[in-house]
Design a binder for these strands. Structure first.
Lengths: 149, 149
DNA sequence: TTTATATAGTTGTCTAAACAACTATATGCC
DNA sequence: GGCATATAGTTGTTTAGACAACTATATAAA
């Protein structure tokens, strides 16, 4: 019997992740007010490409904790928006390398500022130590449950 | 300038809530293995009805942090599964009161055990103090961003 | 070298979230 | 009573997540 046997009633807030959905909603709202017409899911993919351009779809799966069909469709939509391009790899013809367009590069500066601002709104009144602790707990939960995608 | 100005790169884990989706996936998997054929979203609605039967859809919205269309469709699906029934309120004919069926009552004992077990899997190696701290941070984030639905 | 197996990506189906627009009932005010 | 407004719920559309089934290419074993 683990020492942290939980009262059943405490389940809810952990399961629903209402804090993360609240952040997501606020970020989406801030994008909209700045006339940035992408979803936060699309943004989260671009985010990794801004760090390193030319990732494969599989690398995007690993980076964003999504499965392959999800990334296929996110890349589909980003391609429709002309924000990325699929380029077949010459080394391994199974792979698509995903490259940012110029339009996507322009988005980076603008949205990074909005994201930073959103996070500061979210974390007002929370200390760095508390944030680190919370992140550590969430990471531990993730690691406990991680199963191969 | 808040004292917790965040490195931009730290955004990701907060925004995606991968820990909460990991818990959701594991709970769904545990349901499936026990032949419980409902989604965790449906379960989260039933959870509140087990605490108090006969809530209105609006009360379910408040309890589950969902908007009205989401609850309409979750109740639609729960009704198709014959787990709840909509009963028009006599006091206020705009309202549907949602009541559990006998079938849903049977699910409670079984799924509560699975949920408790899942949470213990998730929180292995995390102390109660750490859990409390993490919950406090997530609650604070939620409160910082809470806006009327 | 051919055959099995693993990996990268796609497609189909179902469920759900977000948002806008809508209907119907209730309430408050003149 | 009649009109404005608020509240409860529904419907349509788009995007996305989960899962299974699929194609195509690459790798390893026989």
């Amino acid at each position: 019997m683990p020492n942290n046997q939980f009262k059943r009633g405490e389940l809810y807030s952990f399961i629903t992740g209402k804090a993360s959905t609240a952040i997501a909603r606020r970020l989406q709202k801030n994008f909209k007010e700045a006339n940035v017409e992408i979803t936060i899911e699309q943004w989260s993919v671009l985010y990794h490409l801004w760090k390193q351009d030319g990732l494969s779809q599989q690398q995007l799966c690993d980076a964003t904790f999504r499965d392959k069909p999800s990334i296929t469709r996110l890349v589909d939509n980003l391609e429709k928006l002309k924000l990325v391009k699929r380029v077949a790899s010459k080394d391994d013809r199974r792979m698509n390398m995903i490259y940012l367009t110029n339009e996507a590069q322009v988005l980076q500066e603008q949205t990074m500022g909005l994201a930073s601002q959103t996070l500061n709104e979210a974390l007002e009144g929370v200390t760095i130590e508390q944030i680190e602790m919370a992140k550590m707990v969430l990471q531990k939960v993730y690691d406990n449950l991680a199963n191969p995608l």
